[in-house]
Design a protein around this nucleic acid. Structure first.
Lengths: 209, 209
DNA sequence: CGCGCTTTTGACCAAAATCAAGCACTGTGG
DNA sequence: CCACAGTGCTTGATTTTGGTCAAAAGCGCG
């Protein structure tokens, strides 16, 4: 299938809530995040997007988006024409099946995020997020060691986890003091994955895909 | 398509996490809920299921379930054979499309639950849940007035919203004192929908589909 | 150097959890 | 018909967690 490759600079909005985009994107390189702005101006981050993630499956149905997506770093996208995809789907049950599987998996991820917010302390949430992100990175582009480019501001973490930026700062200090991670100048290092997992799991060994 | 109608008594587990069910169900009558048990014994309720909801789309793919489902009241289900459905899907793109649409919608619902847990007070959460449930009931089986059979224990509410049962009790007292609702012997009455909406929205007019 | 952005730290406050006791309603057995 | 056990709800006292407000320090950059 034909597709265009698009580059987008950090901080740019990629798609906006209520848009009815004509294209669907695969995030090819870089980080982005899905979010909504609440009427009082606060921002809820729904999830972070890493290379391999899809943006806007809704496009296939011509449904308006329920969230915006913003680039966190410079980002490379592959754009697919929504109409072409819809047509391909008609013809290929295999493709279609793939898509259903993908959206079922997405729903499962969202369930996991609900679990993650349910009844966990700040420390568990932050530790869990870091584990989830680094695991996903390892899985996708077999990163060798335990060092990661980490483009999130503490405010992003706060907006994703339902905490304040101030409290995220304190929480990260705890993780540092525990010797679990170090984080400076956007480089994250997992110093003690074991310990970090304990801090995250304290309650649950589950649900942090 | 052939299907069987099944009756299940209140409190019975309908499907269990990690099952690979051979059937998919439509909840025809009654209430149920999806949940996971965390290793420490706590329960996170993912969502409540009302008449019209599907249980276990995953079945079509032979994927194991990521959650259990339990009946809250006596419940009537329509069971569809998963294999038959999968075959029907192969043949009918329209059916398939319908399914994709459904699972996309489910993911959107899960996003909304994330928003709902993000950074809201106990009062907002409880008021929001009550609004969401009563709206859904009204939409599905055009209930006439503002009285609803309400089979949830306060512990269910707590497990869904990430609060303690004790605090849910206090919160409901507030809603009562505000004149927004009354709730006794499993009958919920919305006394002042306007006020209830204010208490829920205080921050956001959004996301309580 | 000085400005903006982010993070850190401190003092204080508010929301919700925890611990504990008591109450109300139901169903059961004597 | 009553005692009483079980379940769920309420209420109070106290503690913990995280939020708020404010100031200062670190860093990147023109």
């Amino acid at each position: 299938m034909r597709h265009d490759s698009i580059m987008i600079p950090a901080r740019r909005i990629i798609v906006r809530k209520s848009d009815v985009p004509m294209q669907m994107f695969t995030l090819y390189d870089g980080w982005a995040f899905r979010f909504v702005l609440l009427p009082d101006g606060r921002r809820q981050i729904l999830s972070f997007l890493l290379p391999g993630d899809l943006i806007g499956i809704q496009a296939i149905y011509g449904d308006p988006l329920r969230f915006s997506v913003q680039a966190l770093t410079d980002v490379t996208l592959c754009a697919f024409n929504a109409k072409e995809i819809a047509e391909a789907m008609q013809k290929s049950p295999a493709q279609m099946k793939h898509l259903v599987a993908r959206s079922i998996r997405e729903a499962a991820d969202a369930d996991n995020r609900v679990i993650g917010l349910g009844r966990r302390t700040a420390t568990e949430r932050v530790a869990g997020l870091i584990l989830k992100l680094t695991n996903a990175l390892k899985r996708r582009k077999s990163v060798p060691g335990e060092n990661f480019a980490f483009p999130l501001r503490q405010e992003h973490i706060a907006d994703a986890l339902g905490l304040t930026a101030v409290h995220v700062s304190r929480t990260i200090s705890i993780l540092r003091d525990e010797g679990a991670i170090s984080l400076e100048r956007n480089i994250l290092t997992i110093r003690d994955r074991q310990r970090l997992t304990e801090l995250a799991d304290h309650n649950e060994a589950l649900a942090l895909t």
